[in-house]
Amino acid sequence: MGLEAHQTEGLSKGTETRQYCGFTIGKDLFAVPVLEVQEVIKPQMITKVPLSKEGVCGLINLRGQIVTAVSLRTLLGLPASKNVEFMNVIARVGDSLVALVVDQIRDVINVTMDSYEPTPDTLVSPLRDYVSGVHKTDGRLLIVLDLDKIVKYFDT
């Protein structure tokens, strides 16, 4: 019985699909669950926040709402991009919005849960601190970011 239950669980887990909003930073492919993403917008006029933590780009005005923009490059310890055509992924975390500044936006990616792996041990900090797991997709790893951890970093 225990075995059966395990199998069904495995089966349902395997076929369950997840939708992610994919984007690249440097050479890597990252993702956040599509349900947490409100929209993707072009670079906005940004107000710098002096004394804020490294990684805070500033504040943007999203139709009357004030959104904190966060540079994932800085957060993940990568050098700043020369690319000016970065994009903002607006994601909802709790009752606030955060704009993730990324290099390039990809499609919505559908994956099944059987490709999921917990964060590999080979991933090191700071990247490791903000990752909830990875999906093995064709030819390339999809790194799933944990928004709560990112927000927590800025909140404290």
């Binding site: 006029m45 926040v49 004394l51 504040l59 005005n61 004030i66 909140d155």
Partner: peptide, 26 residues
């Protein structure tokens, strides 16, 4: 006045506001 949700630990700011030209001011 709009609260700075994510950056509330920065005590020198009481919040942010949106100016007439759409810019955000702290």
């Amino acid at each position: 006045v709009k609260p700075l949700k994510l950056l509330k630990s920065l005590s020198i700011y009481a919040g942010a506001t949106i100016m007439g030209d759409g810019r955000v001011a702290l």
